[in-house]
Simulated assay, not measured.
Amino acid sequence: MSLVLPSELVVDRFLPTVRAMLATRLAERDMTQREIAANLGVTQAAVSKYVSGDGGGDDRFRDDPETVATVDRIADGLASGEFDGYDALSELLSLVRTLEDRGPICDLHEETMPELEGLGCDLCVRGLDPDVRAERDVLGDVRTAARTLASSPQMADYVPNVGTNIGMALSNPRDETDVAAVPGRIYAVGRRIEIPANPEFGASKHVATAVLAAESVDSRTRGAINVATDESILEAARSAGIDPLEFEADYEDRRAHLQERFRDRGRVPRVAYHRGAFGIEPTTYVFGPAASDAAKLIVELLEAAATNE
């Protein structure tokens, strides 16, 4: 793991780019290189390199509208005498905070520390508060579940035509925006499964419906995954001591129907399924305390089904 602070990227990548941009803007406003050097706190030789285009930098900042607007504002203020060093620093600090909030600095941080990618990291903006940690843990668990499914050689045979998805809710979820899932769903491509993107909150309506129904009956059940209904999976579940729950496919309010069926059963089953209806593909939901638990059970059922063939 490479441990890189955002402030290092500000110093190494952002500041040289902004200095070069400012030097160019100030030169265009007829300021001498000595005056530019004094304002930027660099040598006159450095200003010469900046103005000639040899100063390096990162195009992500050069092309960023907020950065361009801020640099122009500072250049106008310094050239006219309306800004002093304090004013320029205030503008730059405000810009850095903006760019750290899902901006170019955040993008660079994720590139430098791949462990952050897909976490919806808000450390620079919000700090490591309990809510952020909980969201990070849920997103991480959904990614673990996706890797577990991808490692199963049987999984591709049980991805429905509409795709598979993995869902996991935060504690005490309000609606589908509190359920993390894979955007675009997971599809079978040949003998492997394709995971199109990192999980996000609010990315799935259908699997979120099942997760929310389960969590409302048993708060310990926060994960669910859908696969195609197949008798071999249901039989493998029964052999493992799991009694699959059948429910109707064509209820208009699927969440309310699932809640009612779970309450009738007295608990949330590990496996619930329907056999389809007009325009509705047969689907089986596998539940677990977390998405990774549901994925582990699916792999176990698929392996058992393959052994029994």
Rank of each mutant, 00 (worst) to 15 (best):
D12P: 13
D12T: 15
R13W: 11
R13D: 04
R13Y: 06
F14R: 13
F14W: 15
P16E: 05
P16D: 05
R19H: 06
R19T: 01
A20M: 05
A20K: 00
M21L: 08
M21F: 02
L22W: 00
T24Q: 08
R25V: 01
L26C: 00
L26A: 01
A27F: 00
A27Y: 01
A27N: 02
E28A: 09
E28N: 08
E28I: 05
M31L: 12
M31H: 02
T32I: 00
T32L: 00
E35P: 00
I36A: 03
A38C: 04
A38F: 03
N39E: 13
N39C: 09
L40N: 08
L40T: 10
G41H: 14
G41A: 08
G41I: 07
T43F: 06
T43V: 02
A45T: 14
A45W: 09
A45P: 04
A46C: 10
A46G: 11
S48M: 05
K49R: 15
Y50F: 10
V51K: 14
G53I: 08
G53C: 07
D54E: 13
D54Q: 14
D54N: 12
G56N: 03
G56R: 07
G56A: 05
G57K: 05
D58K: 05
D59Y: 06
F61T: 13
F61A: 02
F61N: 07
R62F: 11
R62N: 10
D63G: 03
D64S: 02
D64A: 09
D64C: 08
D64T: 02
P65C: 12
P65W: 12
P65N: 13
E66F: 13
E66I: 12
E66T: 11
T67N: 03
T67R: 09
V68I: 15
V68C: 06
V68R: 15
A69Y: 11
A69F: 12
T70Y: 13
T70H: 13
V71W: 04
V71H: 03
D72A: 14
D72E: 15
I74K: 02
G77M: 12
L78P: 01
L78G: 03
S80M: 10
G81H: 06
E82W: 06
F83L: 11
D84K: 04
D84A: 10
Y86F: 12
Y86H: 06
D87W: 10
D87G: 12
A88T: 15
L89W: 07
L89A: 13
